[in-house]
Design a protein around this nucleic acid. Structure first.
Length: 1002
RNA sequence: GCCGGUGUGGCGAAAUGGCAGACGCACGGGACUUAAAAUCCCGGGACCGUAAAAAGUCGUGCGGGUUCGAGUCCCGCCACCGGCACCA
């Protein structure tokens, strides 16, 4: 396609200008504002040392920073970046103080794998990739404040990542205050107290042992120390503390991916395979660092209600956290004389009467104890069978239930019934108590299992008749009497097609003489729970699916843990944190980045580094990639600070008003899924965060968790990091398929830039459709917006001068072409004249539409509004410069280079109409956003549709001031309407003023 | 299976319960040109009509409903996309 306008000269010119002027620098409280900076001029702060109160309201608009891969930028990246940039430029023009930063999430696997292959240090690869990404991103003209650039692999950055880890390590979650506190505030249980601690204290509420609080994840239950020597007491005290830290070491089974040579977090395992690469993952016990995110499960869940994220995203987080309310119930093992109690978790305590067997996970602690000798071989074999299954086999492939009887029985506490105890791998050791009461009549899994193994099924919840009839066995289908269905259901529920797992009414049971029959499920639940609690047989309990976060990786290219291991006098290993003064802890130089032959992490190769003079050894695991991205948005606020991860002054200014501000906000709810407008001046935290859905439960959950810990410890002032979050939709290839190298449908932004320029690229990315929708790429569509930009160009420039410019280029060497842009003159129709009412109407319609659309992130319709403006303005015989100037301000966020170039041309034509104002000397980026005048939009006459019985029959042209009566009269007088009224009586006439008339005739 | 989202021309899409298809792409016709490209102008949901029009009928995944009026609200389905999934 022929070049529409010299974007190849214009775009580098203005990118250079912005960089040299530092046009998009944001300023922190305490800074002296440069006198010449357009921000200072716009807000009258030139040369002033500003406090937070002097500065205009902030607007923090954030992109999810990229991993700088070797493949370079993808068309998906700039979609979100363009949206945020348009917002940033719009809000800047609107007078806000915009923070719009960019950085690099640069630790990661590809650079490490390249290092393993070639021996090249990952830093080198990373730096080269960052350089490439920087160049690509800068070529798109985004208004980032590059002075705040962060790189997670920079020691100046990861020093603070390690620092935050130390905060986690040195804190515990106090259930009484419901927040994280320094570990020093943790009180020891009485039997671990030193004599001086006991003095003058009443009874302490000892925190519950780990195994109850976080079943399945804990391993370090403190030892009792009744007979402890001082030395043993000290060790026990240390173990107790360590078991409470937010960062703790654990020996639990983890997701080991042999192919990647590392462990993975639960969130990184999809269908039993690694999220990266799709390699098999197996469960394997290993010592690992964990972060106690489970302590924050309730806060992470509850605070979702205070932030403005899409419903689907919130739902994903809710599902991941997986709260369920129910009860823990104790079942005594028969003949154990109360010594062996198996606790089960159930969300349906009302079905306790229907519990006809117990199932415990193969890994459950009680398996050993309860198994009868004659069953032992079978049980051992089954345990082996279950342990040998990979996660994939245990979930996807396991359609058939499997399990083995232990030989033991338990006593159902509500009715004293003897019920068999089975082990089966459909019960997960890691959830609840690792054991369930099976209620086959009212749980689909238990139903399948009971049918397979011939276990008893008893109905205790009565469904609606409809359910009974629909799910009845086929041999009943010709029965006419409901009694047949009922009696069959009562006597042989196993014949039915499935179990009834819904809510109904309690059926045919009583407990301790208390009748339950007929109670709705909710009431039955509450009543039985109260009874259990009174009897000491169980209690109300809340469970979460969320597991603690496995935080270590066996990698080189990650943050080393600031941890050393020591041995006590007994030879037992324990860990200690390095002091803050030891940070940053740099990884050692290696010449081989592979794990050691005996399977230790790569860092173990650097024995000089690992072994310290005092005999202690360094931790050789490193942190996962998520660590750096958990807090980067905070580092941007004060990126150069060497004394703190962020100064509290900068944090308070940029992150907003804190808890009070948050409480006073009501998140707008609406029936539709469209993005809501937001109140930008008071939102706490990041005002707008845009990124892909792939981070819905990983990055976004982890970052919220860290932020809440930092909040509890007083390091940040808001409980949530990201107030408003929008997911941009995926961009598909031209074939409507996901872009991938193997499909060969990947679009490279660089190619588009060469052909059409950055402005067209930006515009097309936004014109494709709503930001959050999935949409296919279409290069032809780029041509459409490119033509639009060409029309904007021709709206302004003089044709003859352009010809002169083009001829001059052929006679000049390429490097000097940019200078020739000055040959381009404004068209003769552009004059300093008063606009006509029609012109003003066109302009103000556009201002209104663009402004409102930007407030709702509707970029596509804003662009179409500007297209309509240009299509109209092209027909004007005279083009008042005041109108065109305002249009350029509207265009600037979308196509900043072209707008700047044309702005520089219209500057030569000072507008008398506007008067000589200082504003016109400001850079385009800081020109005040135009306001529309509703008075200019008023129409004199309106064309009103006339309907008969809801069908359009004619249109009438009436004065805008026409009264309803006049409208009705005019409508009834329509000729075209008459045939449809013939032979009918007019029942009524609906008149919607200025909208339509509908004649109802029968 | 559960949760969330989306279904509108040949395509991307637009429409506070009030004229369905704005804007753009592709396409067709015309102007300019020696010609092509670019540009400018015009056309366009389907059907039925007609020399061409006009008029008319149908039309927003499917089936119902509410309403003077439904792409939009309610009920019941279907399809596709995304997430979760032996979580008791």
């Amino acid at each position: 396609m022929r070049r529409q306008y010299p974007f190849h000269l214009i775009e580098p010119k203005w990118q250079q200008f912005w960089e040299e002027q530092q046009s998009f620098r944001a300023f922190n409280p305490g800074e002296v504002l440069p006198a010449e900076h357009p921000f200072s001029k716009r807000h009258g702060l030139a040369g002033k040392k500003v406090s937070a109160a002097d500065l205009p309201p902030k607007f923090y608009v954030l992109d999810m920073f990229p991993y700088p891969s070797g493949a370079g930028l993808h068309v998906g990246h700039p979609e979100g970046y363009t949206a945020t940039d348009i917002l940033a430029r719009y809000k800047r023009a609107a007078g806000l103080h915009v923070l719009h930063p960019m950085g690099w999430d640069a630790f990661g696997l590809p650079a490490e794998q390249y290092a393993i292959k070639t021996g090249q240090h990952p830093r080198q690869t990373t730096e080269a990739n960052i350089a490439n990404f920087t160049k690509q991103i800068k070529s798109l003209g985004f208004s980032y404040d590059w002075s705040r650039e962060v790189d997670t692999t920079d020691p100046k950055y990861f020093r603070w990542t390690q620092w935050i880890f130390l905060k986690l390590y040195n804190s515990w979650f106090n259930p009484e205050t419901n927040k994280a506190e320094p570990i020093e505030t943790l009180k020891y249980p009485e039997d671990l107290q030193l004599p001086e601690e006991k003095v003058g204290r009443g009874v302490l509420t000892a925190p519950r042992p780990e195994s109850e609080e976080h079943p399945g994840t804990a391993n370090a239950s403190p030892r009792r120390a009744e007979t402890a020597t001082p030395y043993q007491l000290q060790a026990a005290r240390r173990a107790y503390r360590d078991s409470k830290r937010l960062a703790f070491s654990s020996e639990a089974p983890v997701n080991w991916c042999p192919e990647l040579g590392t462990v993975l977090a639960n969130e990184e395992v999809i269908d039993g395979k690694s999220e990266v690469g799709g390699f098999p993952v197996v469960r394997r016990p290993m010592r690992q660092w964990m972060l106690r995110i489970t302590a924050y499960a309730e806060k992470l869940l509850a605070d979702l209600d205070t932030i403005d994220w899409s419903d689907s995203l919130k739902e994903m987080q809710r599902n991941w956290i997986g709260k369920s309310e129910g009860a823990v119930v104790e079942f005594e093992v028969e003949h154990s004389a109360g010594d062996a109690i198996i606790e089960v978790f159930t969300t349906r305590p009302d079905t306790l009467f229907g519990a006809t067997y117990l199932v415990i996970a193969p890994e459950h602690w009680a398996v050993e104890a309860v198994t009868f000798n004659e069953q032992r071989p079978a049980v051992e074999a089954y345990k082996k069978f279950a342990a040998g299954k990979s996660d994939l086999e245990r979930t996807e492939l396991a359609k058939e239930k499997t399990g083995v009887f232990t030989g033991a029985h338990a006593i159902n506490p509500v009715n004293g019934e003897r019920i068999p105890i089975w082990i089966a791998d459909y019960v997960l050791a890691s959830y609840g108590t690792g054991a369930i009461m099976a209620v086959p009549a009212h749980d689909e899994r238990d139903f399948e299992f009971a049918k397979k193994f011939g276990l008893f099924i008893r109905v205790v919840v009565w469904p609606e008749y409809k359910w009974i009839v629909e799910n009845a066995p086929l041999d009943l289908k010709d029965q006419r009497y409901i009694e047949h269905f009922e009696s069959r259901y009562i006597n042989h529920p196993g014949d039915f097609q499935k179990s009834f797992a819904g809510e109904g009414t309690a059926f045919n049971f009583e407990v301790d003489g208390v009748q339950f029959h007929g109670l709705p499920t909710a009431e039955a639940k509450a009543k039985i729970t109260t009874w259990l609690e009174a009897k000491g047989l169980g209690k109300k309990t809340i469970n979460y699916k969320l597991r603690d976060w496995l935080f270590s990786r066996q990698r080189y290219w990650g943050e080393p843990f600031p941890i050393v291991w020591k041995k006590d006098a007994n030879g037992d290993a324990y860990h200690e944190a390095l002091p803050e003064s030891a940070l940053p802890l740099l990884p050692p130089a290696l010449d081989d980045y592979k794990p050691t032959p005996d399977g230790q992490p790569p860092l173990a190769r650097a024995q000089d580094w690992v072994n310290l003079p005092d005999g202690s050894v360094r931790e050789t695991n490193t942190m996962p990639q998520w660590a750096g991205s958990c807090w980067y948005y905070l580092r941007y606020l004060d990126a150069g600070n060497d004394g703190a991860f962020v100064s509290s002054e900068a944090e308070r200014y940029w992150m907003g008003k804190g808890v009070e501000g948050l409480k006073s906000l009501t998140v707008e709810k609406s029936a539709s899924s469209t993005i809501q407008p937001f109140n930008f001046s008071t939102t706490p935290g990041v005002d707008l965060y845009v990124g892909g859905t792939e981070h819905a439960v990983l990055h976004l959950l982890y970052a919220r968790f860290w932020h809440k810990v930092l909040f509890d410890l007083g390091h940040v002032s808001t409980p949530e990091p990201f107030f408003k979050l929008v997911n941009q939709g995926l961009i598909l290839g031209e074939d409507g398929q996901k872009m991938s190298k193997s499909r060969g449908n990947v679009v490279n932004p660089d190619d588009i830039l060469v052909e059409y320029g950055a402005d067209a690229f930006r515009l097309y990315e936004m014109f494709m459709g709503p930001l959050e929708m999935v949409k296919p790429w279409n290069t032809k569509g780029v041509e459409g917006v490119y033509r639009f930009l060409g029309r904007v160009w021709r709206l302004f420039v003089d044709e003859n001068s352009e010809t002169e410019f083009e001829q001059a280029q052929t006679a000049t060497e390429a490097q000097r072409h940019r200078e020739l842009l000055k040959l381009i003159k404004l068209g003769p129709a552009i004059i300093d004249a008063s606009p006509t009412p029609a012109q003003l109407k066109t302009l103000h319609t556009t201002i209104k539409k663009v402004t409102e659309d930007l407030d709702h992130l509707r970029f596509n319709t804003a662009i179409s509004a500007m297209m309509i403006f240009v299509n109209d303005a092209m027909t004007w015989e005279t083009k008042p410069v005041s109108v065109l100037r305002e249009f350029l301000i509207l265009l600037q966020p979308f196509a900043p280079h072209l707008a700047e170039e044309l702005w520089s041309k219209v500057q030569g034509l000072k507008s008398k109409v506007e008067g000589t104002d200082t504003k016109s000397t400001l850079d385009l980026a800081y020109q005040p956003w135009p306001k529309f005048d509703p008075a200019l939009l008023v129409e004199d006459t309106l064309e009103i549709p006339v309907q008969v019985n809801g069908k359009l029959r004619d249109r009438i042209v009436v004065a805008a001031t026409a009264t309803p009566a006049e409208l009705e009269a005019a409508a009834l007088a329509c000729e075209k309407v008459q045939p449809f009224l013939a032979g009918k009586t007019i029942k009524k006439v609906i008149v919607v003023p200025a909208k339509l008339v509908n004649i109802v005739a029968v």
